[in-house]
Design a protein around this nucleic acid. Structure first.
Length: 301
DNA sequence: ATAAGCACCTGACCGC
DNA sequence: TGCGGTCAGGTGCTTA
C-alpha cells in the first residue's frame, strides 16, 4: 500500500502488535524481496533470529523495525506489498514471500490466572509484484543508511518548508514530478500528488521555477490535508491488495476528487476530469480549474 | 547536480 | 479459450 498514509497505517499496526516481540524464526520463500541484502536469504534470516523489536519507525514510504542490537529490518511495500499479522497456522497467502515467527509479549490477564509470558505470532511479507523488499540495515535502528537519500516527509515535524520551496523553485521539472521526487519530499505518490494538485487548482505540468513561494506553500498545505484525511480513514484502497496488518481496507477511495475520476464531473466546476499520460503513468486533473501552462518559449528563462 | 526514460515483476482486463 | 496489448498505488539505474 504504497503512499505515506497507507504505510503509516501499517507502521502503527506493527507498532501496536510487535514492539517487545522477539524474532524466533525467519523463512524466506522467494529470494527476490530480499535482493538488496548482500548476504542473501540465509544471511538475512540469520541476522534477525533472536533479535527483539524495540520500535517501528517510518520515513516517507519506508518503514523499519528497530532491533535491540541497533540494526533494523527495513522494508518498502513497492506497488503491491503487505505486512500482515496472523495467528500461527493461518493458511499461506498465494504471494507469501517471507514469514517471521515471533514470540510476542502476552496481553495482561486476570490476576491469579497462570499466564504464559509470550504468545506466538506470525508476521508475513506478502507481495504479488515484488517491487517491494526487505533488508537488514546494519546500525540502522535510528535511520537506515540505505535511505539517507530519502527526504523527510511532510508530516515529519522536522520537515523544512522553506528548504522545500527554495529547492522546488530552482527546478525546471513539472511540479508533479517534484512532488513525486522522494529526494525532495517523501511519501507522496501518484494518488496524493493528483489530489493535492486538484485542491491547489494547480496543473501538474507547471514547471517548478515558474511557481511562487506562496503557491508552493499552499500546495504543501494541501498535501498535508489530504494525507491527514486519508490517514483518518485508514488509507486508500481499491482492492484487497492494499490493506492494514489485519487485512482490512481503508475507505479514502470514496473521497477522491481527481485520481481515477476520468470522465466524472469536477466537484468544483462540473467539467469532466481528464486523464493524460505522464511519466509512464496517468495524471488526472480538471482542465478548467487546473489550467495547463503555456509552453516555455525559447530564449526565456 | 538535474532530467528523462526504461527496467524490474505479476495479474487483471479488454478486444479480437 | 487463447493471444497480445494495456494498465496498476514505486524505486533505482543508466544515460545525457
Amino acid at each position: 500500500m504504497p503512499e505515506l498514509p497507507e504505510v503509516e497505517v501499517v507502521r502503527a499496526g506493527l507498532e501496536r502488535h510487535v514492539v517487545g516481540a522477539s524474532i524466533e524464526a525467519v523463512e524466506v520463500l522467494h529470494p527476490r524481496p530480499v535482493r538488496r541484502d548482500h548476504r542473501g536469504p540465509t544471511g538475512f534470516a540469520a541476522a534477525l533470529v533472536g533479535q527483539r523489536i524495540e520500535a517501528v519507525r517510518r520515513r516517507g514510504k519506508y518503514f523499519w523495525l528497530a532491533l535491540a542490537n541497533g540494526d533494523a529490518l527495513l522494508g518498502h511495500l513497492g506497488m503491491s506489498g503487505q505486512m500482515l499479522l496472523h495467528e500461527p497456522g493461518a493458511l499461506d497467502e498465494r504471494h507469501l514471500r517471507v514469514r517471521f515467527t515471533l514470540a510476542a509479549p502476552a496481553p495482561l490477564v486476570e490476576e491469579g490466572t497462570p499466564a504464559p509470558v509470550t504468545r506466538p505470532l506470525e508476521m508475513r511479507f506478502v507481495d504479488q509484484r515484488m517491487f517491494g523488499g526487505l533488508v537488514v540495515s546494519a546500525g540502522g535502528a535510528e535511520l537506515p543508511a540505505e535511505i539517507v537519500h530519502i527526504a523527510r516527509d511532510p508530516i515529519d515535524p522536522e520537515f523544512d518548508d522553506d528548504e522545500f520551496v527554495r529547492r522546488a523553485r530552482r527546478r525546471t521539472s513539472a511540479v508533479k514530478r517534484l512532488l513525486l521526487d522522494q529526494g525532495l519530499i517523501s511519501g507522496v505518490g501518484n494518488i496524493y500528488a493528483d489530489e493535492a494538485l486538484w485542491r491547489a487548482r494547480l496543473n501538474g505540468e507547471r514547471p517548478g521555477d515558474r511557481l511562487t513561494g506562496p503557491v508552493l506553500r499552499e500546495l504543501l498545505g494541501h498535501v498535508r490535508d489530504v494525507m491527514g484525511q486519508a490517514l483518518a480513514q485508514g488509507g486508500t484502497s481499491f482492492d484487497a491488495l492494499y490493506v492494514n496488518v489485519n487485512g482490512e481496507s481503508g475507505y479514502f477511495d470514496r473521497s477522491l476528487d481527481a485520481y481515477g475520476q476520468e470522465g466524472e464531473p469536477c466537484g468544483r466546476c462540473g467539467t469532466a476530469i481528464r486523464r493524460v499520460a505522464f511519466m509512464n503513468r496517468s495524471s488526472f486533473f480538471c482542465p478548467t480549474c487546473q489550467r495547463p501552462p503555456r509552453a516555455r518559449r525559447a530564449g526565456r528563462r
